[in-house]
């Protein structure tokens, strides 16, 4: 097991390096001059060159790339923003909790609401409850989150005046953003739970359990559900990971100073250190979340454990064979 963990962690390194290189390259090819955006149009050519030199923007691609990689992965320094000279890592870590709150609440809501909804739909396949859940879920995934966010503001803030429409001053400021943000996830998780449940219910071991006379409730909750939930957990993990950077639109609607909002502004201002540092950090977090989910799996699901051990045995056999062939 330890070997598996180490192997998986090592496999993260090329992915994260790849993300850093990819995003650096994209930003390198982005038209637009950060120097102009910092200093305005009213400067001489010498001033322009001087600022560009100070920021290291006059160096060739590979020099800048290696400098960036060394700074990020060896010195663990994300640099300072071009616009206000603030430390990028500090900014990101003050903003991350706000985004993380939204992402975690959404994840929690999915576990509490979407999974039971999906199970209900699957157990009542073809019936009224099933159609009701399906319709609800498909509407939830079809409504744009920023639009439903504005509809919530319209109803709960402007008409009823119950909840604030922007900011993060109180705990209840988070209610509307979370509600608007989680809808799509709720729909997709419910749909996935339903289809997984349907697949599992049809499988042989459930038929066997029924034939043995195991009560339906036990079949559902201790035989079928754990197996059906495995792909759903991956889905939730991926969603949580991408929600950390993907709540941009919601943060814009509610003027929440979170990570997404920060990044979008940085991208349009060509604030390279912020974009590069932010995307790299988000990618690291995403990979770690996915990794943790996989790890949980390997602990929960004996099949995955066995698979890994099986492949190890196979490899041993192969090397043995090769050894024999050489001998």
């Amino acid at each position: 097991m330890t070997r598996y963990i180490i192997k998986r962690l090592l496999m993260l390194i090329p992915v994260i390096l790849g993300v850093a290189i990819l995003i650096f390259t994209i930003m390198y090819f982005t038209p637009g001059d950060p120097v102009k955006l910092i200093a305005g149009d009213t400067m001489t050519a010498e001033q322009h060159d001087q600022i560009a030199h100070e920021l290291g923007l006059d160096q060739p691609y590979f020099t800048r790339l290696f400098k960036f990689l060394k700074q990020t992965f060896i010195d663990f320094d994300l640099g300072t923003s071009y616009i206000d000279n603030s430390s990028v890592s500090q900014q990101l870590f003050t903003r991350l909790p706000r985004t993380a709150i939204i992402a975690s609440v959404c994840c929690l809501l999915q576990i509490i609401i979407a999974i039971p909804l999906g199970v209900t739909a699957a157990t009542h396949q073809g019936g009224f409850l099933d159609s009701f859940c399906i319709v609800l879920a498909i509407i939830a995934i079809s409504v744009p989150s920023f639009w439903i966010a504005m509809m919530f503001i319209l109803l709960f803030s402007l008409r009823l005046d119950w909840l604030p429409s922007f900011g993060i001053d109180h705990w209840y400021s988070y209610i509307l953003p979370c509600a608007a943000n989680c809808l799509m996830g709720l729909g997709s998780t419910a749909r996935q739970t339903r289809s997984q449940m349907l697949e599992v219910i049809r499988s042989d071991y459930v038929v066997t359990a029924r034939a043995k006379g195991v009560p339906e409730r036990t079949i559902l909750y201790s035989h079928a559900l754990p197996n059906a939930l495995i792909p759903v957990i991956t889905h939730l993990g991926t969603q949580f990971g991408s929600a950390l950077g993907g709540t941009v639109v919601i943060e814009t609607v509610f003027s929440i100073p979170g990570v997404g909002y920060y990044m979008t502004n940085a991208i349009s201002n060509r604030d390279y250190p912020v974009v590069l540092g932010g995307v790299t950090l988000l990618a690291v977090l995403f990979c770690l979340v996915v990794f943790l989910v996989d790890l949980i799996y390997a602990f929960i699901d004996p099949r995955i454990k066995a698979q890994y051990e099986g492949s190890q045995k196979k490899r041993l056999k192969k090397t043995e064979k090769r050894g024999k062939a050489y001998a």
Binding site: I23, S242, V249, T264, L282
Partner: peptide, 8 residues
């Protein structure tokens, strides 16, 4: 590519 949030 999938490690970068879609919208970003």
């Amino acid at each position: 590519i999938q490690s970068i949030p879609n919208i970003l």
